[in-house]
């Protein structure tokens, strides 16, 4: 049984569905990358998995438990954490406070908070140097690091990162991908939403989405189809 199983997921905003029956599996321990053009429905997919959107039909099973429709605030306690599109750091709070809030569901356990904080600083030393800085004044790359770091503070089993590299320089994007790889090596299952082919070397599996349905699932090397490559990966 996969860690996350999505079956026939239909999700929309208002009456018209945006996802038309999406099914996907994410195995424990892997790094999955979800590709797709603008408007394909990637954010809608991860938002539904994280509990921000309630599906109109279909099932989502996490670790054997049905979770479709449960609110985000409950799912983060069960081990699903999303670093959202647009980063959404708490702009007027400090880096430290952002991380502290990331650990909200584990706040009763000081030891977890300490270990996770240490781990985050280990992955992103830049954040450690900027603990007292107000998050809104961080650079785009630093805000992305903070958003991922905040999502890690709840000690998730499944980490979802939407638009990991959007707006980042190639060097910073690579740093982020390398850290995502380390996070995965350290035992967290990862789903990255991306438009940047630079993430491919780190992916165990690639999903490609088009107009609300999955059109390809497989390992990165399998994307031989020249059309798929040029359309979705720009390569």
């Amino acid at each position: 049984m996969a860690l996350l199983e999505v079956r026939d997921l239909v999700v929309g905003y208002g009456p018209h569905p945006v996802l038309h029956g999406v099914s996907l599996d994410i195995e424990a321990g892997e790094t999955c990358v979800l590709f797709g053009l603008n408007g394909a429905g990637k954010t809608t997919t991860v938002s539904a998995i994280a509990g921000l959107l309630a599906p109109s039909s279909g099932t989502i099973t996490f670790d054997g438990q049905p979770i479709a429709g449960r609110p985000a605030a409950a799912l983060v306690a069960s081990g699903i954490s999303l670093s959202p599109e647009g980063r959404r750091v708490f702009a007027r709070l400090t880096v430290e406070q952002n991380l502290q809030l990331g650990g909200w569901v584990r706040r009763k356990d000081a030891a977890v908070a300490r270990t996770q904080r240490q781990l985050v600083f280990d992955y992103f030393p830049r954040l450690a140097e900027r603990g007292d800085q107000v998050a809104g004044t961080l650079s785009g790359g630093e805000q992305q690091m903070l958003a991922i770091g905040r999502a890690l503070m709840s000690q998730p089993r499944l980490l979802l990162v939407d638009e990991a590299s959007l707006g980042l320089s190639p060097t910073v994007a690579r740093t982020v991908f390398e850290v995502m790889d380390r996070i995965n090596d350290d035992g967290t299952t990862v789903l990255i939403v991306e438009q940047n082919a630079g993430v491919l070397p780190y992916a165990d599996r690639v999903l490609i989405m088009e107009k609300g349905t999955l059109v390809f699932t497989g390992v990165g090397d399998e994307i031989r189809d020249a059309d798929l490559r040029s359309t979705y990966l720009g390569a």
Partner: peptide
């Protein structure tokens, strides 16, 4: 108050 979506995501109702 600053980022309701992100607040939900960290577990704050």
């Amino acid at each position: 108050s600053q980022e309701p979506t992100a607040a939900e995501l960290v577990g704050v109702s």
